[in-house]
Design a protein around this nucleic acid. Structure first.
Length: 452
RNA sequence: GGCGACGUGGCGGAGUGGCUACGCAGCGGCCUGCAAAGCCGUCUACACCGGUUCGAUUCCGGUCGUCGCCUCCA
């Protein structure tokens, strides 16, 4: 088991991961708000935290990965209204899409995926605890968190109160008038006409605010003081700041030990966001490039850095995937040479240092180069399988599909033509094989057929 | 305007106070009937200006530029 370090937004430093119990690690990562199909940007935390969990498990930690689904939110009402559809129906449909789209990445599911709509009871209890402790107050059916009652407010996002603006409502709006302080944010929102989902509460009918949903779901799944809370860097303020404040105020302790944030995917130099209209839906990207190339693309940069989304970037990821698949074809199943242990170890060492996937990939490439040179001695692929497994790319070692009989027959005829030194005919046959989606390679003693 | 991050070779992208990142692309070669795959070799770097240092791409300051957050967006 390696010592693992991770960058913590709260302290601004790379810190050691120190599990509460013996080697138990709880990870909560904020999942999507389900008001439309998710895009490649939403996939980044799914992949980063999913693979981090795999790596920690590889190191011997008992990991519990929780990624929520925010299915009660203003955005969902806003999206459902113009469509003339019930918001709950839209949320349920988009939740299904989210599951299918992320399933297609081939990385499996988190251990738990709580829904906000199924956590209303604990959310109400949470708000009640905040009111009871004097950190929240009701006003005309709304409940607000009193930001200035938390003396550490701002410490996660490193902001001063005077530089903040909860901004949820323009000054002078009804909500702004109900707040005691403009910095305060909503925990419970009284039911409004046009909102078609509503729950009872001690403060009247309504529905929860976004931030309290995550505090309740995270605590319900992992308790307070769990190891890693993650999400996109755009959530640091106000979402995670508010989550942290709520838990401190209600429970008197920090929600998580490490706050870990991934950088944004950028299209045309800007963050990919629906408001900017520069969206690449995940399901389309996977359909176009394949799941392995998409995962490779996402691990090609360090998780904290912004990552440019472009045709070029995906083409390069595709080429990297191809290179690994080729290497796998040349290696037999079985143990890898012991003198390559050091490279296998360096791969995992890199991941242990703030999950440095690009550095790990560089080592993996070195491993391939050296192992390929040992093929004559019958190098086995065990190391490669171990490394790819942590990256969710073990499928690159899967055996190739056998070519259909008619293609094999074409290749045999080509082989015959080559023996007769009728190369024009042989090349025509190669074109025919290619037209059927296969590539023929001449190898010692015969040929090989591979899907193109 | 406030806070924060970043500027590395054609592209993507790590890292380091002095020693080849790595991959893709390019070029040369080996192999091949020609290819493909593979292998070998090789060319393009560390935004700019100062400072600290024997020595800075790496530390400090400034300039310019890019990006994120400050309007529930991963």
């Amino acid at each position: 088991m390696r010592e693992v370090t991770i960058h913590d937004t709260y302290s601004g430093a790379v810190v050691p991961l120190q599990p509460r119990g013996p080697a138990r690690v709880g990870i909560y990562a904020c999942g999507p708000t389900v008001y439309s199909r998710i895009h490649i940007g939403n996939a980044r935390p799914f992949v980063v935290f999913g693979l981090l969990a795999r790596f920690l498990e590889h190191e011997g930690y008992a990991v519990r990965l929780v990624m929520n689904v925010t299915d009660v939110n203003d955005k969902i009402y806003d999206a459902a209204g113009p469509l003339g559809r019930p918001s709950a129906e839209l949320a349920a449909e988009m939740t299904e899409h989210y599951r299918a789209d992320t399933d297609a990445l081939g990385l499996g599911r988190p251990d738990e995926e709580p829904l906000a709509s199924e956590t209303i009871g604990p959310i109400v209890d949470y708000i009640a605890a905040l009111v009871e402790r004097g950190h929240a107050y009701a006003a005309d059916g709304d409940v607000y968190f009193a930001v200035r009652s938390d003396e550490r407010y701002g410490s996660l996002s490193h902001r001063l109160l005077e530089n903040m603006d909860q901004g949820e409502d323009a000054a002078g709006s009804p909500a702004a008038q109900r707040k005691r302080d403009p910095l305060d944010f909503a925990l419970w929102k009284a039911h409004k006409p046009g909102e078609d989902t509503v729950w009872d509460s001690p403060w009247g009918p309504g529905r929860p605010g976004w931030h309290i949903e995550c505090s309740a779901m995270a605590e319900g799944a992992l308790g307070v003081g769990f190891e890693i809370h993650g999400g996109g860097s755009d959530l640091v303020f106000p979402h995670h700041e508010n989550e942290a404040a709520q838990t401190r105020a209600a429970r008197g302790t920090e929600l998580a030990r490490i706050w870990m944030h991934n950088g944004m995917i950028q299209l045309t130099g800007e963050k990919m966001a629906k408001s900017a209209g520069n969206i690449a839906p995940l399901h389309e990207v996977i359909e176009r490039w394949g799941a392995e190339a998409v995962v490779m693309y996402l691990v090609s940069g360090h998780y904290r850095q912004p990552l440019a989304f472009s045709q070029d970037a995906l083409e390069q990821a595709e080429a990297n995937v191809k290179r690994i698949r080729e290497a796998g074809r040349r290696l037999a199943d079985g143990d890898s040479p012991a003198d390559l242990d050091r490279l296998r170890d360096r791969f995992f060492d890199a991941l242990a240092r703030d999950f440095n996937t690009p550095e790990a990939l560089a080592v993996l490439n070195e491993w391939i180069r050296e192992a390929t040179g040992s093929v004559a001695e019958g190098a086995g692929n065990a190391h490669l399988r171990e490394m790819l497994g942590v990256l969710g790319l073990e499928s690159l070692l899967a055996a190739d599909q056998p070519a259909p009989g008619e293609v094999v027959e074409l290749a045999q005829r080509r082989e015959q033509a080559r023996r007769e030194r009728d190369f024009q005919h042989a090349d025509r046959l190669r074109d025919e094989i290619a037209a059927r989606g296969w590539e023929v390679r001449d190898v010692a003693g015969g040929f090989e057929l591979l899907p193109r």
